[in-house]
Design a protein around this nucleic acid. Sequence first.
DNA 1: CGCCAGGGCCATA
DNA 2: TATGGCCATGGC
Length: 213
Amino acid sequence: MELHTLYRLLFRHYGPQHWWPAESPYEMMVGAILTQNTAWANVKKAIANFGEKLTPAFVTEISDGELEEIIRPSGFFRQKAARLKTLTGWYARYRYDIETARAQGTDTLRMELLALKGVGRETADSILLYALQKPVFVIDAYTRRVFARLGFAVPSEYEVFRRFFEENLPRDPALYNEYHALIVRHAATVCRKRPDCADCPFAPSCPGARNDD
DNA sequence: CGCCAGGGCCATA
DNA sequence: TATGGCCATGGC
């Protein structure tokens, strides 16, 4: 089954997902840090704790301790507070302006993000795609799980798996955006809770095997 | 109760 | 390259 065919099945089944759920590019970046190995419900609590003050200036100015208390519900709050400071420091290079950052080349932006302590491949790629609208396909645990279950030989190397998507799909950020969102929607809110896969959009292609992660 | 969630860093072999 | 320990909260 081709990648784009699987995308159409997901889209037909779940419809548009309107990702990333954030009111600004900066809020999106913050969410990318906070959601590291963390349920989104906890991230929402942390983001809500910012109130109307979720801005680069605010995060830069408050103390580490205060920031930690705000994001506490998202877990790993000490390291994540430090990571937010680091990421915001990077954003300052572009005067906290998403269009200024976006004018920079994708490869350069990716290298800069990966150089930050606390920003790994998935976080970097999420920011590149969802905040900067760059054509980068995001790989996460759900992507591996879903495609392993579909019978794909999922590469152990992140970059290899990412290239697989980017080389077999049109170079379209909007498509990558929707595709990844649909994978998460499928894996996190339906497939996981219904092992019987009675209403699986991939049926009968998806064997529904559980020994895949 | 235990399990685990939209990772990443670091030490170790 | 590939594991394993660690970080922490909250929903189920």
